[in-house]
């Protein structure tokens, strides 16, 4: 046998520790055996106080954002990007896919309280100044005051709620940075992440036990990618013992 160099490796689709510690939502997922043990739960809560509390949402479990698709787009000017999936279209896709996977969803909104919607930013620039958009990639969205919020879909028994962050949501929640322009950028993935990490932190509901947040993938294969988000969410629900 001889030593043979490896020329190329494929990307491992698992986050690194640094990525997880920057987004603590994943650490909320506990083994079932821990969930059943009050002493362990107390230990987890106190030992991970900093990271856990920032993601805690009381009795509602918030699924992490399952990333399939870049979830950001640039439109207007000379650019022609992929067509967004609008709310109605997305709801149909989500319901159909979830039903196939064993999660019965109905096209009915469900209200939850104490939700802080992110104030998204639409960066309006002339198409000649596209570079400026990148300045906003790491900008932190501010949160609006907590208020009632209607999730887009609910499960047939009302215990699971779904929010789809569409381009129109993104625009509805936005405060334009500049006026007078022909081009804009939007980042529904980022808005979805802020919702999961902070927006639902104090969310309250008598009925809803789990929330999934999906986003417009904003890619050529957006429909497939949205289906993958649904599939991952259903797996997560099963892993949590919620369905």
């Amino acid at each position: 046998m001889k030593i043979e160099k490896v020329v190329k490796t494929r990307k491992v689709r698992v986050p690194t520790k640094t990525e997880v510690l920057n987004d603590c939502s994943l650490l909320r997922i506990l083994p079932k055996r821990w969930q059943k043990n009050k002493i362990v739960i107390a230990a987890v809560t106190s030992l991970l106080a900093i990271s856990m509390t920032s993601c805690d949402s009381g009795n509602i479990k918030i699924a992490p954002v399952f990333k399939h698709g870049v979830g950001s787009s640039y439109s207007g000017g000379m650019s022609g990007g992929p067509m967004p999936i609008n709310e109605d279209e997305a709801k149909k896709i989500i319901i159909k896919e979830a039903n196939l996977l064993g999660l019965k969803l109905v096209n009915k909104e469900i209200k939850i309280d104490q939700v802080s919607v992110p104030t998204t930013s639409i960066v309006l620039e002339s198409s000649a100044k596209l570079w400026k958009i990148s300045r906003y990639d790491n900008a932190k969205f501010k949160l609006k005051k907590p208020a009632s919020f209607n999730l887009d879909l609910e499960s047939d028994n009302g215990t699971v709620g779904i929010e789809y962050v569409s381009m129109s949501d993104y625009y509805d929640w936005s405060v334009p940075e500049e006026n007078a322009s022909t081009a804009s950028s939007s980042k529904p993935l980022k808005a979805a992440e802020v919702l999961v990490q902070d927006g639902f932190k104090n969310a309250k509901s008598d009925k809803v036990k789990a929330i999934g947040v999906f986003y417009d993938p904003s890619e050529e294969k957006s429909v497939e990618m949205l289906k993958e988000q649904v599939a991952d969410f259903v797996k997560w629900l099963k892993g949590q013992g919620l369905i």
């Binding site: 689709r13 650490l27 997922i29 079932k32 821990w34 991952d232 892993g239």
Partner: peptide, 9 residues
């Protein structure tokens, strides 16, 4: 992908 709690912890 399964968001397995034991694996994650």
């Amino acid at each position: 992908k399964k968001r397995n709690g034991m694996f994650i912890q």
